[in-house]
């Protein structure tokens, strides 16, 4: 049974006088893999950052399992433990080893014991294939490896939903595959994911919902078949055509 985890109502965001997001409405159910696609500058990343409150929405509401997130006890930090985020530029903590990166949130924020945190961290590091590298520092890893650690770090917090902000855009082409494979596995296991991506194959084959954004508005949303197979707007057709060839 899927229930709605996240609901976004009439969200807009201004940077100064410039309106980046206009009246965004959509919702995420458990187990959904939602891909947000669109040209650069269409507001995809800003939307994701608003959902994680890294940017403060100018107006509108974000509802997480019932209450508006502004009313959640513990404020933004408490809410963020439930909503994991994977960044384009990895943002691993440079002063810590791979293992420590995956443990620090568990021990400092969730107050788990060291043993428990290590067990949990190892579980996810093994899942992303980074268990042999637990003693490495981020600067000693390749981009693809860093991103897999970043995914393990987010998973180790046992979030309800995982946000991906263009997770493969900063990677060399040969490393994109290893990260996408991890994401495919997660999708199969029923992890709820919200993915901003330029990987159309991923959006089409892995996700069950596709959101197309253009100029700060959601122009189209639906199943991959609907959006890729039968786009309703000229902009969508043009955008998709650029990826076909």
């Amino acid at each position: 049974m899927s229930e709605t985890i996240l609901e976004i109502n009439h969200l807009s965001k201004f940077f100064g006088k410039h309106e980046v997001l206009t009246d965004i409405d959509f919702s995420v159910d458990t187990g959904d893999v939602t891909s947000i696609i669109g040209a650069s500058g269409s507001g995809k990343s800003t939307l994701l950052r608003c959902i994680n409150l890294l940017e403060t929405p100018t107006s509108g509401e974000i509802i997480y399992r019932g209450p508006n997130i502004k009313k959640i006890k513990g404020g933004a930090p408490a809410y963020r433990t439930k909503v994991g985020m994977v960044f384009q530029s990895f943002n691993l903590f440079n002063n810590m080893t791979v293992l420590k990166n995956c443990m620090v949130g568990q021990t400092k924020v969730l107050h788990r014991s060291k043993e428990e945190a290590k067990k949990e961290a190892m579980k996810y590091l093994e899942k992303v294939g980074m268990a042999p590298y637990i003693n490495a520092k981020p600067r000693q890893l390749s981009g693809g490896q860093k991103q897999r650690v970043a995914i393990a770090r987010a998973l180790a917090m046992n979030p309800d939903i995982l946000l991906f902000d263009e997770p493969t855009s900063a990677l060399d082409p040969e490393m994109v595959g290893e990260v996408l494979n991890v994401m495919r596995t997660l999708a199969k296991e029923g992890t709820t994911m919200l993915v901003v991506t330029h990987e159309m194959a991923f959006a089409r084959d892995v996700s069950n919902k596709v959101v197309y954004m253009n100029g700060g508005v959601i122009l189209e949303q639906g199943t991959p078949e609907e959006v890729f197979g039968n786009p309703q707007h000229k902009e969508t057709v043009d955008f998709l055509a650029r990826f076909r060839n």
Partner: peptide
């Protein structure tokens, strides 16, 4: 941002 994203 990385630290905030895990709830710190």
């Amino acid at each position: 941002e990385g630290a905030k994203a895990i709830g710190m």
